[in-house]
Simulated scan of single mutants.
Amino acid sequence: MTEYQKTYIELKKQFSKTDGGPDSVRALYAFKEELEQNEDPQAKEVLVDVYDLLAFKKDAYELLCQIGDRSDKKTLKRMGTLKDYAENWGNHYALPKPKTPEEKREEKERRARLGLPAFRYHPDPLDTGAFEESEEGVICDCCGKATPIFYSNPFFSVEDIAYLCPACIASGEAARKYDGSFQDDYSLDDGVNDPEKLDELIHRTPGYSGWQQEYWRAHCGDYCAFLGYVGARELRALGALEDVLDDPMWDDEQKETIRESVNGGHLQCYLFQCLQCGKHLVWMDMD
Score class of each variant (00 low, 15 high):
Met249Tyr: 12
Ser261Met: 06
Glu242Ile: 03
Asp141Ser: 14
Tyr215Ala: 10
Ala170Lys: 13
Ala86Asp: 04
Ala175His: 05
Cys143Pro: 04
Tyr85Arg: 15
Ala174Glu: 07
Cys277Val: 02
Glu107Ala: 13
Tyr29Lys: 08
Tyr121Phe: 14
Gly90Pro: 06
Phe131Leu: 13
Glu135Phe: 06
Pro248Asp: 15
Glu102Phe: 03
Arg176Asn: 09
Arg105Tyr: 05
Asp141Ala: 14
Leu76Val: 11
Lys104Glu: 15
Asp251Thr: 06
Gly265Leu: 02
Gly239Trp: 02
Met249Gly: 00
Cys224Val: 03
Ser261Ala: 15
Gly137Glu: 10
Glu33Lys: 10
Thr147Gln: 01
Ala60Gln: 09
Asn38Gln: 03
Asp49His: 12
Ala130Ile: 06
Lys177Thr: 13
Pro206Thr: 09
Leu95Lys: 12
Lys108Met: 11
Ser261Asn: 06
Tyr85Asp: 13
Gly210Pro: 11
Gly231Ala: 06
Asp124Glu: 14
Ser171Gly: 13
Asn38Tyr: 01
Val282Pro: 01
Gly80Tyr: 01
Phe31Lys: 05
Lys74Phe: 09
Leu271Ser: 04
Arg259Pro: 10
Ser181Val: 11
Pro166Val: 09
Asn263Arg: 15
Gly278Asp: 11
Ile258Leu: 15
Val46Ile: 15
Lys73Asn: 10
Ala167Asn: 09
Gln5Ala: 10
Val244Asn: 01
Val138Arg: 13
Gly172Met: 10
Thr128Gly: 04
Leu126Glu: 11
Gly221Asp: 11
Leu28Asp: 03
Asp49Gly: 08
Arg70Lys: 14
Tyr121Trp: 04
Lys104Asp: 13
Leu47Asp: 10
Pro117Met: 14
Gly264Glu: 06
Pro101Gln: 13
Phe155Gln: 07
Glu39Ala: 14
Ala175Cys: 13
Tyr208Val: 02
Glu33His: 11
Asn153Thr: 11
Asp69Trp: 01
Asn263Thr: 04
Trp250Pro: 00
Cys168Glu: 10
Gly80Val: 05
Asp287Arg: 14
Met284Asp: 00
Asp189Asn: 12
Leu164Ala: 02
Ile149Pro: 00
Lys32His: 03
Val50Phe: 07
Ala146Glu: 14
Glu214Ser: 10
Lys73Phe: 03
Lys279Thr: 09
Glu214Asp: 14
Val282Glu: 01
Gly68Phe: 02
Gln268Val: 07
Glu256Gln: 15
Thr100Glu: 10
Leu198Ile: 12
Asp52Ile: 02
Asp251Gly: 08
Thr18Met: 11
Glu133His: 04
Ser157Tyr: 05
Gly191Gln: 07
His280Thr: 02
Ile9Asp: 13
Tyr85His: 11
Phe15Gly: 04
Asp40Gln: 08
Asp184Met: 10
Leu238Asp: 04
Thr205Ser: 12
Gln14Leu: 09
Val25His: 04
Leu245Thr: 01
Arg204Gln: 14
Lys17Asn: 15
Arg233Gly: 02
Glu132Tyr: 06
Arg259Gln: 12
Leu28Gly: 06
Pro195Thr: 13
Ala43Tyr: 06
Arg78Ala: 09
Thr7Val: 07
Glu36Ala: 14
Tyr51Cys: 14
Arg204Pro: 04
Thr18Ser: 15
Gly180Val: 12
Asn91Ala: 13
Asp23Glu: 15
Asp49Pro: 00
Leu54Gln: 02
Leu54Arg: 05
Tyr61Arg: 06
Leu164Gln: 03
Glu132Phe: 08
Leu241Tyr: 06
